[in-house]
Computed example of a mutant assay.
Amino acid sequence: MTGRPSEERPLRRAVCPGSFDPITLGHLDIVARAAQLYDVVHIAVMVNKSKQGLFTVDERIALIEESLSDHGNIKVESFHGLLVDYCRQRDIPAIVKGLRAVSDFDYELQMAQMNNGLTGVETLFMPTNPAYSFLSSSLVKEVAAWGGDVSHLVPEPVLRELRRKLARP
């Protein structure tokens, strides 16, 4: 870059991938922090046809968009396939992953090394806010299914839809 006003710097882009079934406050914390570091953050709702989620992919996308409506630099879409293909198709050089515990690191490091070996994409690990270190979408669904209070674990749109989907007749 020469610093001339006519030359624009390329956008710094990253992706936060996951199933987000549903998105939690822990996910939102990682995405919001990534949005401060990158010009554009893609949220890739990864589709796994072998898993039946509580929310459809379209519902997840809508909940994420509603939950992050105050961020102007986030794009949400679904993807079926390898994450590195998603990155290559959109010219995204970085993956942002939140780590809750050392056990997350073991698995995520292997994935990061594989992704880098396949295409050169880098992975940035962010430590989770300690307030969310125990939090997972699976636990949220289980607690909510048994009538437990998850209002402090998910954004309001997710809470509303969890209550609707899990309402007992």
Rank of each mutant, 00 (worst) to 15 (best):
P93K: 01
I64A: 03
W146L: 15
V45K: 05
F105Y: 15
L25I: 02
A44W: 00
A101D: 13
M114E: 05
N129V: 12
M114K: 09
R88A: 15
H80K: 15
D21W: 07
T56S: 14
A14S: 12
P22W: 00
D104V: 11
A62M: 10
D39G: 06
E122L: 07
I43P: 00
V143L: 13
Q52K: 15
N116T: 06
A62H: 11
P130H: 13
D91M: 04
V102F: 13
A14Y: 03
V84G: 07
P127F: 15
L135G: 02
F125T: 06
A44F: 01
D104Y: 08
G53T: 13
D58P: 00
L28Y: 07
E108H: 11
I61W: 02
V150W: 11
A131R: 14
G18E: 11
K75G: 06
A112C: 09
V41F: 07
Q113Y: 12
H71L: 13
L109I: 15
F79A: 12
P17A: 09
D149P: 02
F134M: 14
D149I: 05
E77S: 11
L124V: 14
Q89S: 14
G81V: 09
L135P: 09
S133E: 14
Y86M: 11
G72F: 06
M46P: 02
R88V: 15
D39C: 04
R90C: 10
H27N: 09
A35I: 06
F20G: 09
L63H: 03
F134W: 15
Q89W: 14
L63C: 04
V84P: 10
V96Q: 00
R100L: 13
V31L: 12
G120P: 06
D106Y: 09
D39N: 11
V150G: 09
F55H: 00
S136I: 14
D91E: 14
V102H: 08
L99T: 12
D21M: 10
A14F: 00
E77I: 09
P93Y: 01
D104S: 10
F134A: 12
M46N: 03
F134K: 14
V47G: 04
G98F: 01
Y107G: 12
A35H: 12
N116Y: 13
V47L: 06
E108G: 09
V150E: 03
A62D: 07
V102R: 09
V150T: 10
Y86P: 13
G72W: 04
V121Y: 00
F125L: 04
D58Y: 09
N73I: 03
N115L: 06
V31H: 07
P22I: 01
S151W: 08
D70I: 03
G147F: 04
E122D: 12
I92S: 02
I92D: 05
G120Q: 07
I64Y: 03
G98R: 05
E59F: 02
F134D: 14
V140Q: 06
I30L: 08
T24Q: 08
K141M: 11
G120L: 08
N129K: 08
C87T: 10
S137P: 14
L99R: 00
T56Q: 02
Y132D: 09
V96H: 00
V15G: 00
I74L: 04
E59K: 03
G53V: 04
G117H: 10
L28H: 02
Q36P: 07
L25M: 14
L28G: 04
A94Y: 11
D106P: 08
D58C: 02
S133W: 13
Y38A: 08
M111Y: 10
R90L: 08
R33T: 10
S69F: 06
